[in-house]
Write a protein that binds this DNA or RNA. Structure first.
Lengths: 118, 118
DNA sequence: CAACATACCTTGTAATGCAGCGTATAGGGT
DNA sequence: ACCCTATACGCTGCATTACAAGGTATGTTG
């Protein structure tokens, strides 16, 4: 209930910006600790700005797994449905610094562009 | 000639991150002054980090135009091929603050995510 | 006229976010 | 017994987009 009414163009644009970004967000989350899919979707929904829906998160996790960046393991619960926990592989952990550097460079470039127009 | 050999995964990722971002970059450029297509492609190639190729820029400009964010006019040159100059419309100029705010929010969220894992 | 730079543009491919589904388990309400 | 909700997994199809590759036309230089 933000009450904020964003223009449809912005909504469409934000959706596009998220492409690729979500990889980064998920890997950053997993850098800290293990998560299971539904938990990730919920966590990013709470953080609001980085909202990742379920229809997005599961294909995404599968892709990251097939790329060898993350690994999964089933965990039986005493009550309820088993959870599939994901964690970073060595490869995934090695990729993160590159992504961080790339992001920082883009961030700086855009900041400069915005400030030039001040 | 960077001499830097980025992993293919990073290259693919960066290409995805650019999705939608390029709209923002072009609009930011046009906020300052008029550009023509080829000039934009060259300018961003010089700045290197924000490189937009010709195959990308022309469809992109057409899309922004059809969305009413930019307008174009032909300019005959005394010598050489006529140029199609683009500039922001009122609508485009009105959208930019929203995009800037959205970008800033994303930027802050990601920064926090990265620092949490420090 | 060949080669190159300028300047416009299109087509096809690959990749991805996400709405909208579907499945199954557990619990609460009526 | 029945429905509804929450949890937790997943998939399919659509729309969108970056970019390589190619095309067209004009002007300059050798």
């Amino acid at each position: 209930m933000t009450g904020k009414k964003n223009s449809p163009l912005i909504v469409k644009w934000e959706s596009q910006v998220r492409k690729g970004m979500l990889d980064f967000i998920v890997l950053l989350c997993l850098e800290k600790r293990e998560y299971y899919g539904y938990e990730l979707a919920r966590a990013t929904k709470t953080t609001a700005e980085l909202d990742i829906s379920e229809g997005t998160i599961y294909p995404l996790l599968n892709r990251l797994k097939s790329e060898g960046l993350i690994a999964s393991r089933w965990v039986e619960m005493e009550a309820g449905i088993p959870r599939k926990y994901y964690k970073l592989t060595a490869k995934g952990r090695g990729l993160l610094p590159e992504m961080k550097a790339s992001w920082q460079q883009l961030s700086v470039s855009l900041k400069r562009l915005m400030e030039d127009n001040r």
